[in-house]
Design a protein around this nucleic acid. Structure first.
Lengths: 212, 212
DNA sequence: CTTATTTCATATCAATCACTATGAAATACA
DNA sequence: TGTATTTCATAGTGATTGATATGAAATAAG
């Protein structure tokens, strides 16, 4: 009897590089220079892996990018849990935007947001990759909208609150901050923008503090 | 005596295409598909002009894009005058952002903002083109900041107003709306975001209307 | 050991990239 | 008409693109 596949060590010559580390390098390369404007040659340099090895390990350039994109976005379940456990929708969104401000101005990572910049435009050939990025944004938007509706239902937010508008604004500010970061804005500037953008949540003050 | 150069008709075979119309087509192509991801072949198709004619008329791809970029942005003197003649800085910014919302969702133009998307990322080879786009954003920011400072000086805005933060927020919302538009958001959704973003200008209510 | 399997490095592939050489065609000026 | 000048269409340039063919090297299984 053979051992189960998961436990049996794979036959053949073993991989000579760390697949996960190589993926991270690829993600950083796409983050910095974009999807279509990062060539396979750029990737071999960044990843320290030859072209044929990239293709056997990741499929093709598109699949490598999609995998890098998923790695960048991370587990949206985490974001959803963060939104579920936050005291208010406003707090959750504020934290998300401020986290983005920090992420976009990291010392060891490219400036801005991979999601916002890597596939901002491109040839019609890459439209499905752009759609994948749009899908991630839609998922984030859905999480925001869901929590806002919860707060409306529980009275934390006034009934006239418009969930989609606040969610779209949060997304717009986040993706727009990416442009500022790429233009050279520092972390404090982005954090100030993030906090200023939360003024639109006037209604969230309802039930929290009254006018003195 | 020869006539002055400006009045004398140019010698040689005349241009067989409308240079201005071709530039507009090029701008639309860059707007839709980005700078590096729009090939010369794409441009010859879009402009209806052969490659050698493009090069004689516009120099090279980079210069063609820079000319298209200037055409897209338009005369910033107009924007400055619009800001100067507006009643308040807040009104001027609100109008600018709402105009952007309309522009990004035009029926006959690509979705989103050329400035935000065409050079969002790219190879290091195209860094000077990205810098040109950043320069335009800096110029817009300077116009906003200038008008806010004026309003602070004249008492239309409270002295604790932070011009750079409000200007950065306005820019972020505009550039972020471009992403929303590309994802398929319609004009009303963008206008709602634009108006919601103006809530951060709470101080601008000072001197305009009192709490009832 | 032999065999099967997988990855390795090397050397490419056709297609496309931005760009241009070439000579004919079309105009202005003399 | 003849000459100078400019643009035209055609056909290409070398370089780079994403992706592979090939056979040696490294491992597991028998």
């Amino acid at each position: 009897m053979k051992q189960p596949l998961a436990l049996r060590r794979k036959t053949g010559r073993p991989l000579s590089f760390d697949r996960d580390a190589a993926l991270e390098k690829a993600m950083l390369a796409f983050w910095k220079n974009g999807y279509e404007t990062t060539s396979i040659s750029d990737l071999t340099t960044a990843m320290g892996v030859t072209a044929p090895s990239i293709y056997t390990a990741f499929g093709d350039k598109k699949r490598l990018f999609l995998e890098a994109l998923r790695r960048y976005v991370g587990d949206l379940g985490d974001l959803e849990r963060s939104f579920a456990t936050a005291t208010t929708a406003r707090d959750a969104v504020a934290r998300m935007i401020e986290d983005a401000a920090v992420l976009y101005t990291g010392d060891t990572t490219p400036k801005g947001c991979l999601l916002a910049s890597a596939v901002a435009t491109g040839s019609t050939y890459a439209s499905d990759v752009r759609e994948a990025a749009a899908q991630e944004r839609r998922a984030i938007r859905a999480i925001i909208v869901k929590r806002i509706k919860t707060d409306i239902a529980t009275g934390l937010l006034p009934p006239e609150t418009m969930p989609h508008v606040l969610a779209d604004l949060a997304l717009a500010v986040m993706q727009g901050m990416s442009v500022l970061a790429r233009d050279g804005a520092d972390r404090n500037a982005l954090l100030a923008v993030a906090r200023a953008s939360m003024s639109s949540w006037l209604g969230s003050a309802v039930g929290k503090q009254a006018d003195p």
